[in-house]
Amino acid sequence: MNTTGSGSIFSVVVDFDTSHLFFPTIILWLLGLLGLAILIQRGPAFYRAVASGERKLRFFEPEADKVRLFGTLGLMVIYFIGMDYVGRLFPNMGYGFWFVSIPFLFALSCLYAHGIDKRKLTYISLNALIAPTFAWFVLSELFNVTLP
């Protein structure tokens, strides 16, 4: 990519072999400039507000439920790794999705429910069993969709 002197200042030549970098370069520059502009526009006021204690630098909500938040994250990571792993034990059967979704649904529901009683636990267990089985059957068996 280079701007040639020939013709007008508007003429631009794109070399096909490096054309994959042409647009991303422009966008990166644009992003940098915009970031700088935001910093100039809002930086000083933001700094003053923080320095004077008017505004607290706080990522989480005051009463953040970190157990549920990080529990969700952790369970999802385990879920994805687990289904990929189990899925490879039974190539192309979709069992990774089916077998791992059941404990995932159960665990996540238990994490989310407040005041678990017998009735809720029954709902959770039934849901964890039925939903993945139904989804697996319809998608993988009926519609022949590839699942992990």
């Binding site: 879920y79 999705f97 979704s101 649904l105 996540l108 989310y112 590839t146 699942l147």
Partner: peptide, 29 residues
Amino acid sequence: PKYLLYPIIIMMCVSGAYAINYGIMFDVW
């Protein structure tokens, strides 16, 4: 109830993400 709905939503999103390009695990990530 959300404790039943949200896990189902995540599960369906996973199956959809995996299937959209016919089986690419990275799409789930």
